[in-house]
Design a protein around this nucleic acid. Structure first.
Lengths: 189, 189
DNA sequence: AAGATAGACTAACAAATGTTAGTTTAATCA
DNA sequence: TGATTAAACTAACATTTGTTAGTCTATCTT
C-alpha cells in the first residue's frame, strides 16, 4: 500500500489549514469543508482534533530526534556536524512545510503529549549545544556564548518552512550549502 | 500622566496571555480572570478583542517602520546599516517581549488592519533587502542570493523575543554587538 | 452636598464549537 | 447473491465564545 489513507489525507489537509491560521483558529467544520464532507464524517477516520495535532507534531519531532542521533554518532568535526544539521533541517522542512508550521507554532496546544514533546526538544537542543561547545573547544568555532550561537542558527533553521514554499525552484543540496555558508562563515566579505 | 491607564493595563496583560497561547486560544474570560474582574467589565475599557490585537501589533509595526526610516536616512555603509538594524530589533524586542509574540505569530488574525500591516511589513523588508543589495554592490557583503541573506538574518531577529526573557541579565548593547558578530562575520574561526 | 465619572457587577444573547448517536449508501469480498 | 465494510449523512448535544444592556458603588469634582 503506497496510497494515502483517508486518515492521512485528513491530517495532511489539516496541516495546511493549521499553517495558515493556527490550530486554535481552525474548526472541525473548516477542515470538513476543505475535505468536501461534513464535520461529523471526520470522526469516521480520526479520534479528535487533538489527535490530529499530535500526529503531525510527534512524528516530525521524532524524525528530528532520529536525524540528530545519526549525526551525533558520526565521527566528523564539529563544523561538519553543523553542516549535517543544516542539511537535516532543509531536508525535513522541504518535505513537510505545512507540518513544520504546527511544530513551530502550535506545540503548546498539545495535551497528553506535551511533556514528551518537550523532552524531545530539550534533548535535541542539548545535543546541538554540545556540538557547538565542542567546536569552541577545538577552536573550530569562535569563543562566543554557545547559547547565543545556538539561538541564532536554530532560529533560522526553524523558519525554513516559510522560505521554501516561496522558492519552489530551489535545489535542496545547493540551498543547504548556501545557507551553511551564511550561517557558518557570515556574510561579511 | 505617566501612569498606566486601565486600558493599557488590559492590553499589556492580554499580550502576556497571547504570548503563551496565541490570540485565538485566549478567551475574554481568560483575560478577565487574569485582570481579576469579569469578562463584561473589560468592555468598559476596550471595544473588542480584535481591537486589543490591533493596538498591540500596529503600534509595534509602526515603531519598526520609524526605526527603519531613520536608518535608511543615515549616511553610513551598508554594513553599519545592518548593525543599526540589529540594534533596532534588540532594542524594540527587549522593551516589548510579549507584544513581539503577537506581531510574529498572530498578525494573520488582524481583520481591518491586516492590509495595512502587510504594507508596513513589505515596505520594511524591501528596505532591508535594498541595504543588502547595496552591500553586495559595494563588495561589503558576499555575493549570495539577497533573499536568502535577508531570510537568515531576519529569522534570527524575529526570534529575539524568545531569547531575551531567558537572559534577564543581558546587556542590550553588548548583546547586539555579539549578535552582529555572529550574523555578519559567522561563527567559523 | 450634589453631580459626574470610572469601573465594577449580573444576566443574558446568538453564534460557534467539538463531538456523539444513529442511519444510509455504495463498493468489496465470500 | 448476500454479507461486510468504508465512508458519507442528518440531527442533536452541552459548552464555550464574544459581546450587549442595564445597574450599582465608590471616588473624584464643583
Amino acid at each position: 500500500m503506497r496510497v494515502e489513507t483517508r486518515k492521512q489525507e485528513i491530517i495532511r489537509v489539516a496541516a495546511t489549514l493549521f499553517k495558515d491560521k493556527g490550530y486554535s483558529a481552525v474548526t472541525m467544520r473548516d477542515l470538513a469543508k476543505a475535505m468536501g464532507i461534513k464535520a461529523a464524517s471526520l470522526y469516521n477516520h480520526i479520534n479528535s482534533k487533538q489527535d490530529i495535532l499530535k500526529d503531525i507534531i510527534i512524528s516530525l519531532a521524532e524524525e528530528f530526534t532520529a536525524g540528530m542521533a545519526t549525526i551525533m554518532a558520526s565521527q566528523v568535526s564539529s563544523l561538519d556536524k553543523l553542516n549535517q544539521i543544516i542539511a537535516l533541517h532543509v531536508n525535513i522542512a522541504g518535505r513537510n512545510t505545512d507540518e513544520m508550521a504546527s511544530l513551530n507554532n502550535d506545540w503548546m496546544h498539545l495535551e497528553e503529549k506535551l511533556e514528551y514533546y518537550l523532552q524531545l526538544r530539550e534533548n535535541y537542543e542539548a545535543n546541538f549545544r554540545s556540538i557547538i561547545k565542542q567546536g569552541i573547544g577545538t577552536k573550530e568555532i569562535i569563543d562566543l556564548d554557545p547559547d547565543t550561537i545556538l539561538f541564532s542558527i536554530l532560529s533560522t533553521l526553524r523558519s525554513l518552512y516559510l522560505w521554501i514554499p516561496d522558492h519552489e525552484d530551489y535545489n535542496p543540496n545547493q540551498f543547504a550549502a548556501e545557507l551553511a555558508e551564511i550561517l557558518l562563515h557570515g556574510i561579511n566579505k
